Simulated assay, not measured.
Amino acid sequence: MKLVRIQEMENYILANGTVSIDDLCERFDVSKNTVRRDLNRLTEKGVIEKVYGGVTATEKQLIPFENRHHVYNDEKVRIALHAASFIEDQDFVYIDSGTTTKWMFDHFPEDKFITVLTNNLDVINAVSDKENIELFVLGNHYQAKTRSFVNISSFSLNKYNVDKAFMACTGASISKGLTNADLHEYEVKKSIVQKENELFLLADASKFGQSTMLTYAPLSRVDHIITSAPLDESYKTFFQEENIVLHTV
């Protein structure tokens, strides 16, 4: 599938810094014309620039999902626990996949009775034995690399009236919005943010100013942003204009 190939090509270039046209042809088993067309898409997006015989990355390397559990861990825990404080008794909440949202229920009070909808394996494990939390699980195919369940129909999502959605992202920026690197998870995230609910973004400061190929929502869609360090003034101005509440923990 073209979108998947371009996504994988972007990740490969970001991981290696500079690569040749011949290298990309061999790795993805496509012609030079196909590679050039794909690279034009990435050039327009601004993540690469062309050099003699190849291309070079213009953005910081994104950390592969399987390694994110060990990076910025203290920040992720603080963000998650603060996010959990916004959940009220009787709330029906969606908890997104990701390495930050997994910590939300580590110290969740037993006197709050809520309903959780999620496709996040770590969240499922965290709440499955809590008597005060009713659990609904999305997806019928487990994706090991992101520890989440995917293959979710829009019909199955539409039947749920979620009060609050706690979302993660691979990158966040004013121009590209909330982005994700996995095509299957993109479909889930996009469906959730299109519903009428209060939207919380959980993202450590390293995520801002980065982007991947798939935008699942504009940044203006967010109601609350919970992050780990002060952000650039351009973000603060944008948040004020869009009535987005910034929480730095």
Rank of each mutant, 00 (worst) to 15 (best):
S228F: 05
V127A: 05
A168V: 07
E75V: 04
D22W: 09
G53L: 00
L178N: 03
L231D: 06
V35G: 00
S175W: 04
S220C: 03
L202Y: 11
K112E: 05
M9G: 08
F238C: 00
A144M: 15
V19T: 11
Y94W: 10
Q240L: 05
P230E: 12
I225D: 08
S128R: 15
F105W: 06
G177I: 01
S175R: 07
E187M: 10
D163N: 06
N119I: 04
D38G: 06
F86P: 05
F108Q: 00
A57V: 05
E44I: 08
V127D: 07
R78K: 11
S148A: 15
E49V: 02
A84N: 02
K50M: 07
E134Y: 11
D106Q: 09
F92I: 09
K45D: 14
N119S: 10
K112S: 05
Q240R: 13
N11F: 12
G98T: 04
K207F: 04
R221T: 13
V35S: 04
I226E: 11
D232A: 14
R78I: 03
I124T: 11
T170H: 14
P109A: 00
T101H: 09
E134C: 08
E131N: 15
N140M: 13
Q240H: 12
T248Q: 05
T248D: 08
H69K: 14
D204G: 01
Y186I: 03
E185F: 03
E131Q: 13
D129N: 14
K176H: 13
A168S: 15
S153E: 08
K207I: 01
S153A: 02
K195E: 10
N158R: 13
F166Y: 10
V51H: 06
Y72P: 07
L39Q: 08
K2Q: 15
N67A: 12
N40D: 15
L157M: 11
E187T: 12
I87D: 00
L14F: 03
D232M: 10
D96T: 00
K45L: 15
I133T: 10
D96G: 03
I13S: 05
S97H: 11
E10R: 12
N33R: 14
Q194T: 09
L121Y: 08
T170Q: 10
T58C: 07
N119M: 04
E131A: 14
P218L: 03
V193S: 07
F28K: 04
S20N: 03
S191Y: 07
S175P: 01
T34N: 08
R221K: 15
I226Y: 12
Q61N: 15
Y160I: 14
